[in-house]
Amino acid sequence: MNGMNMQNMMNQVKKMQKQMKQDQENINKQEFTGQAPDGIVKVVFSGDRKMKDMKIKKEAIDPDDPDMLSDLVVSAVNNALSKIDSATKDSMGKYTKNIPGM
């Protein structure tokens, strides 16, 4: 009897692993746009955290203040990565919600 329960549990684990992989692949295919305040810098990432595009408006480019542009890019990138994290947590969280410490 224990052998059958163990086999059943292993089948369920394999099924869950397959679904988790599909869910992660779906996230990886999505695009996430992050932006700095007022959309002055926009970046696009794929769900697997690869930057695909960046748009910078002219008014963001001040030759006398390159640090401002750096800050805007960092803000846009962090915004996009936060969106990826949130989507991953929403999608993958269902697998870990009943595991203590997760």
Rank of each mutant, 00 (worst) to 15 (best):
I61T: 05
K50T: 12
K55S: 15
P66D: 11
N79I: 05
A76P: 04
K52W: 08
A80C: 04
K55Y: 15
K42F: 08
K50F: 14
V77P: 05
L69T: 10
L72V: 06
V74A: 12
D65C: 02
V77C: 10
D48H: 15
I84S: 06
G47L: 10
K58N: 12
V74P: 00
S82K: 12
V44G: 04
V73F: 09
L69M: 10
K57R: 05
K55W: 14
V44I: 13
P66K: 01
V43H: 05
V73Y: 07
S82M: 14
K57V: 06
D62F: 00
D67C: 00
D53G: 08
K42G: 07
K50C: 10
M68I: 03
V44L: 10
V43I: 08
L69C: 11
K52S: 14
D62M: 04
K42W: 06
D85F: 01
M51L: 14
D85K: 08
I61L: 07
V74M: 11
S86D: 11
E59G: 02
D53E: 15
A80V: 02
M68G: 01
I56V: 13
A76K: 02
A80L: 02
N79L: 10
I84E: 03
D67I: 01
I56H: 06
S75I: 00
M51E: 12
S86W: 00
D48F: 09
V77W: 06
K55L: 14
K50N: 12
F45W: 04
V44R: 07
V73M: 14
D85E: 12
G47M: 09
S82V: 05
A60H: 02
V74Q: 07
G47S: 11
P63W: 07
D85L: 06
G47Q: 09
A87V: 03
V74G: 04
K83R: 04
